[in-house]
Amino acid sequence: MRSEILKIAALHLKPLLLSLSLILLIRGHNEPGGGFVGGLMAGTAYVLYGMAFGAEKTRQLCMVKPFLLIGLGLLFALVSGLLALLLTGGAIMEGIWFSIPVYGDFAFKLGSPLLFDSGVYLLVAGMLMLVMLSIMEEG
């Protein structure tokens, strides 16, 4: 009894939501957004898909397993924390920054906090997928 409207909506919303979630993640450092909300949005994309097509199909669709996402998320966060310790001898969780000059004065700043935020993003998304899919499979 799955609704066709939901299926079509989910099919088209999923890439939209995923890209939106990535945008939220990347711009989060300077504007509203961030890893938590980005991760929630990415997870929601799959939850929506799962509601429309069922858990099994969603699992097939995912290229990575939710557990892997959770693990990667923790790993990213941890590595970003240790980076400063390993590279510059600073304290744990101290941010370090690389400046990538793009054009003239404008430089794209890349730092360990972004890595950390990506970890948060992956973990939250993975958690949502794991939880929601498990519950859906209860049938």
Binding site: G34, F36, E138
Partner: peptide, 20 residues
Amino acid sequence: ILTAIVIGLGITAFSLVLVY
């Protein structure tokens, strides 16, 4: 609050599943 909200989701999900 931001982290508390997300953790709240985790806790609620966990307790609901526990109840179930």
